[in-house]
Simulated assay, not measured.
Amino acid sequence: MQDCARGRATGSVRQSGEPSNPMTAIHRWPRASRWAAYALALAATLAVLLVRAQLTSLMAHRPLIILFVLPITLSAVLGGVGPGLVATLVAAVGADLLIFEPIGFGISAPIDTVQLGLLVAVGVLISVLTEGLHRARRRAEDARALAAYGLLLRVLSERLERAQRQVQEGQALQSAILTSVGDAVIATDQQGRVTSLNARAEQLTGWCDAEAVGRPLPDVLRILHGQTRAPVLDPARQVLATSERVGLPADAVLIARDYRKLPIQGSGAPVRLGDGSPVGVVLVFRDDPAANPR
């Protein structure tokens, strides 16, 4: 009998009591909605201009340009640097036209020029600083998302490794069980191709597991009727066709790879998953020394 050298493949959610960052309350405007932020900047600044114009009799010659800090800040917080600068520009032009003397372009008092310059400087500073806060918040959110993604990948990787170890352990256990079984065992897939042989099946058929895997069962398990020498129908095909256990003929003779003739007894049965669906066939057989092959 051929000596086989066998090679087998072995295969976080934020808590309710956690303190929140005040900047997370600032809404991040979607790109398609940034026009709304610019419209808000324009409307809020014009509203302050109109209110200030209505208070001219009460304010006398006091510009009170500090009022424009509110729409500038609101625009920068909700829209970023662009809307903040728009609000600053509208406030500066509006103050020059409607508030500072003389009415219209041009400022007569040097102190008013200083105040207008301070308004522009404060508006630019607020817009730039607020944009920096927006970017810092976005970086923090991206970092948290990246950390969560990394944690997810690590968990999935650990589960995959654990599943692979379980599969390998299951394969090793299955191989050990099949090796310890005294009878010969051959397993096939749904197409009747050999998927594994145990050691006893290798001894009787003369085929190594590594060489037999993937071959049609009749290539490895060649069986004839002892009296007629007619080939026995492929037992794996019979099991797959009927989904029932099939026994070998009483006079079955195995023709080994080295042309030994061995009377055998055995049967084949379907292999099913937990839901009952078939996934292959298992054949168990043994040699029958009491019979004398002709």
Rank of each mutant, 00 (worst) to 15 (best):
V185N: 01
V279S: 11
T113D: 07
R159W: 12
L74C: 06
M59W: 04
S33N: 09
T188F: 13
D3E: 15
A44F: 09
A230F: 04
Y149E: 14
G7H: 05
G268Q: 05
A32E: 08
F285K: 00
V282F: 06
L85G: 01
T73R: 04
R6A: 15
A109R: 05
V114M: 14
Q190F: 13
G150K: 06
V128H: 15
P249E: 12
R193E: 13
T113Y: 13
I223Y: 06
Y38M: 10
G214M: 00
T10I: 04
G274Y: 09
G104P: 05
A140K: 13
R193G: 03
D287C: 07
I99L: 10
G132M: 13
Y259D: 14
D234W: 02
Q171W: 06
P218G: 10
A44T: 10
S127R: 01
V246Q: 12
V155C: 03
S243K: 01
A9F: 08
V120N: 00
D251C: 14
R165K: 10
R139K: 12
E158N: 02
L217S: 10
L89P: 02
D142T: 13
P63K: 11
F68M: 10
V81S: 05
L217E: 09
F100I: 00
S127K: 02
S127W: 03
E202I: 05
E141S: 08
R215Y: 08
A41K: 01
I66E: 06
V194G: 08
L85W: 09
V185H: 02
G276T: 15
V239W: 07
L283P: 01
R245Y: 03
A241M: 03
S12P: 14
S196L: 03
S196N: 05
A109G: 03
L50R: 02
V51N: 03
Y38E: 03
S267R: 14
P110L: 14
D251W: 10
E141R: 07
A47R: 00
L217C: 05
S12D: 13
D251T: 10
P102E: 01
I103V: 01
P270T: 10
G79T: 04
V194K: 00
V48Y: 03
L74M: 07
A5Q: 07
Y259K: 15
A250H: 11
D142W: 04
V86Q: 10
L197F: 10
S108E: 12
R200Y: 02
Q238V: 03
P231H: 07
A143N: 02
V232Y: 06
H225Y: 01
A43N: 00
L262H: 01
C4Y: 11
P235G: 15
V271H: 05
E18A: 13
W207G: 00
E158M: 02
V114L: 13
E211P: 01
L89T: 13
D219F: 00
P110S: 11
L118A: 11
A47L: 14
A143H: 07
P22E: 03
L133D: 09
T195M: 11
A147P: 01
P293Q: 06
A236R: 06
A210W: 02
A39Y: 15
D3H: 08
